[in-house]
Design a protein around this nucleic acid. Sequence first.
DNA 1: GCAGGTAATGAAAACGGTTACATTAAGGCT
DNA 2: AGCCTTAATGTAACCGTTTTCATTACCTGC
Lengths: 334, 334
Amino acid sequence: MTNIKKVSELAGVSTATVSRTLKSPGLVTEKTRDKVMKAVKEAGYRPNWLATSVKTGKSNSIVVLVPNLVNPFFMRIIEGIEQAAQERGYSVLLGDTQGKSQRENEYASMVLTNRADGLIQLDHSFPFSDNDAELAETIPMVSVCERIANRKYPFIELDNYAASRALAHHLISYGHSRFGIIAGQIESQIYRDRLAGIKSVLHEEGIAFDDSMLVGGSYRIETGVEGARQLAGREQPPTAVICFNDDIAIGALHEFKRLGLTVPGDISVTGFDNVRVSAYMDPPLTTIDQPAYEMGRRAFEVLLQMISRQPLNRTREILPFTLVERQSSGPAKS
Amino acid sequence: MTNIKKVSELAGVSTATVSRTLKSPGLVTEKTRDKVMKAVKEAGYRPNWLATSVKTGKSNSIVVLVPNLVNPFFMRIIEGIEQAAQERGYSVLLGDTQGKSQRENEYASMVLTNRADGLIQLDHSFPFSDNDAELAETIPMVSVCERIANRKYPFIELDNYAASRALAHHLISYGHSRFGIIAGQIESQIYRDRLAGIKSVLHEEGIAFDDSMLVGGSYRIETGVEGARQLAGREQPPTAVICFNDDIAIGALHEFKRLGLTVPGDISVTGFDNVRVSAYMDPPLTTIDQPAYEMGRRAFEVLLQMISRQPLNRTREILPFTLVERQSSGPAKS
DNA sequence: GCAGGTAATGAAAACGGTTACATTAAGGCT
DNA sequence: AGCCTTAATGTAACCGTTTTCATTACCTGC
């Protein structure tokens, strides 16, 4: 192992000078700088990152908690995080929690043991348990997508309320009045916000909503399939179905068609997230575009502020959505 | 910061005893163990991971290089890697290279600077440059999916040759004889293997292949769209199109349908990877299932062997594929 | 030529652990 | 009781850096 000692001997200077040459070249005269650089090159020296980090007390790493890796929406967020992190010299440790709180704790404890400097939470399967909640307030941490009541750390999120209102308005403008909803994770703020948004519009428009038209479970294709099956089986099926993410919508679309219904002829289907494939479904999905990449970038920026103990101007950041109208929604069957 | 010194004072023992209590409790008498554990709990002590690592010289982290995060096939591999790593106390650093070789180098150098112990390469956009090639032979590294000629590190891969042969046989059994191919990355071994597999079967069956029926570019949906447009525009369009991944197939499927062709009535379309959504396309995709999760797991196991300097029994591991027949392939139009 | 100030370098103490070695305590045997 | 072996603990060196502080070298102005 070639270490700084060896280089210093090779260059005929002290280790301090080598360190300075590499870290703050301005403090070193040009002649010695040349000597040192020559020795560095000759020895093929690379500073040991672990040693540097233990000395400075900063790992320049962050942990990203995500319930699963296969959801392209999450991954797009992580691309944003990774990109921003990379630009600032940080690297990201992947924390695939698989929705298990034990895993979540394991990863979170990485920042307590100096393995990482902060944490970004994409998971919304589990709120931290109560004693973990304190923990969550002592470490630099930000949450993307999901807001959990009574937690003090910052959130980057979408205006889910407004987004689902936009979706409801869109469908109502097509004349729909019998709505179905296929939700994902039920115990979440996203769920409550979106549901409230839809209901508020229906209420304003004097349209009744039958709570039995609300089904759900998780953000998976299978939930969409199962939900569609249930909704289609009713004596009065809905004419428009709002799915709480694109995967669910993909499943629902598939199942409705399999059952012989046409989309959007018999039934309109909409999603959330604007995942890449959603534009290539048959018919292409009407959905809410979330600026996932940008959300990721912002999350990292905010986290970095917390890590460097800069004050945050606001603890909650809401990014804009876009309603993307494609062919899976259309006029209600009269 | 509560460190081992503080705990040792609190417990009235030396730091060595504290360290031993935590790392190898067998070396310590029960009485002192209790004392120490009490002090640990009281001080809320957590060993500093950086310090431990710098001392032992091992970071217990690996880097995973991946060209982009949104491809669910890659992510499934990474799930496997992550899971296996987690079980062995390793964590994974995400290296989103975006296909840029500079990025690739930056991440690869993490193992030279002790930030990581090894590297798993999913990227196949760039072979390492020549001087990086030496580097790649000095660090623990394994490649998944892609095999690069003349490189010494181990590969985990699919039998692409056999898989594409299976696909070709499948289509020929449906009576097809005019084939089109939409490839991804052209300069790759995968590409050559798959192409060779298809051509070998066609040759055996006495079917001619027109090289102008081969289009491609990258493993993206857009490539499928563009490829389909080109193939459909020919005076004699193919009756069966083999796409080199599911994203391409999804794009092709979409475009063929948009152009008024029916699948599989007018044209059969197949993919590779068996990505989750492929089963929910209209029609569901016939594709080659790759055991992505298992590939990831194996990759980590092999890497771990390299890291711990155990001899490898073989440097190339080939995992089994499965031909998944769905409705996007069918009898050739007569 | 010398005082005084600044710039460049070196020596050594950290950082927070682990561990080889030395030391002490304990127990078993004649 | 004394000796020997083993177990438990302590001391201090070490991992590879950074950084404070002291020292030396250099330059300027008189």
